[in-house]
Computed example of a mutant assay.
Amino acid sequence: MIVRLTRILLLAQLVMTGVLAIAAIKLWHVEQIWLAWLLGLGIVLMFRAAITANNFLIARRYRDHTEPVPPLGWFQYSLLFIKEFYATIYSTSWSLPFQSFTQRLCPGSTSTASTVLPVLLIHGYGCNSGYWHSMSKALQQAGISHGAVDLEPVLGSIDAYASQLQQAIDALCLSCGSDRVVLVGHSMGGLAARAYLRARGDARVARVITLATPHYGTAVANYGIGINSAQMRWTNDDGVGGANAWLRQLERDESSATRAMISSIYTPHDNIVSPHSSCHLPGARNIVLPRIGHVAFALHPAVQACVIEEIRLASKAIPDSARKMA
């Protein structure tokens, strides 16, 4: 569904660019056709930039006041915004509509001699497997076989995704001859991975790596739609703010052993997860990488390198006898 939706939105933006170009010629008396198209494209991009800027403003409103955030100068903040804006354009105009995939197996990583576990990539809210296009290239260069899912329904319950994740895990294990996988989830995908562990257990999972995941909710989700958006909301019922009922129940259902198998990688400069301390998961391995935006997070080389290192560490911790399917 996201593939179809993003293609429709992309087409709508191209049509709007054309309409604005015609307006520039007819109303503003722009004589050069290329300049008219450039003006039309510029207006569309400015509208897109305004949406990204609004996310930053909302995140700033609910930012942490109790935990210190590394300060950014105007140049660094501008660079953060530009990279995040580029990531949104890249994702919605290229990777989401045209780069979705199910599995990408690397030579040697599917043999019994492989020492690295396969990885299942779980996208976030309003995305699909195409979001992982950049991460997929990094995993391929590292020789790590991986798969991805397209969570449906798009606005459904996070709990309902467990069956899809089970099917994807079973298929990836079968393709790679492995008994376990590493789950990597971006944003809502991290919550989907935790909900899977609650529903299905950890027999097929060696480790869960969450990227910019709102473990205790985010205020930005209050402006979203769908059951899954409601499950990610940061509430303010008591005047203080905190996780909603679904997230609190998810926390109560987890054991200390489950928390110990999770790595939460996040940024204190997140423009979607606010407050950013929501990404900090007690009992898990928490890794902070500053000066990266939310959509740009899984596209960033430093994050990709950190994920690959966590995958290798998780693979080393699993004995060979427990790694391969019979």
Rank of each mutant, 00 (worst) to 15 (best):
P68V: 06
Y161I: 03
Y62C: 03
S100L: 02
S129L: 06
P214E: 13
L11Y: 07
C306G: 01
R207C: 06
W234F: 15
G42H: 13
M261G: 04
A317G: 08
C176K: 01
E84F: 06
Q99H: 11
P97Y: 07
K83Q: 11
S256F: 03
H215K: 11
M325I: 05
G189L: 06
I144P: 00
T110Q: 12
T52A: 15
T110V: 15
G130A: 02
I292G: 00
A298D: 05
Y131T: 03
A284S: 15
G217H: 07
E309H: 10
H133M: 09
A257Y: 04
P275T: 14
H276L: 01
A113C: 02
S321N: 05
I318R: 07
D238G: 14
M188Y: 04
C173M: 11
I225W: 10
W94G: 02
R252N: 08
R285V: 15
H133G: 03
I209M: 14
S129K: 03
A53I: 09
L281S: 13
I43S: 10
G226S: 12
E152C: 04
I287Y: 09
L299T: 03
L11H: 05
I318E: 07
Q167E: 12
Q76F: 00
S145E: 06
D170A: 11
L35V: 15
A87V: 03
A322L: 13
H123S: 02
P282E: 14
I225A: 13
G241I: 08
A260Q: 08
Y223S: 13
G239P: 09
S100H: 07
A168P: 08
G224Y: 03
Q103F: 00
H215P: 14
Q76S: 13
R248A: 12
S114F: 07
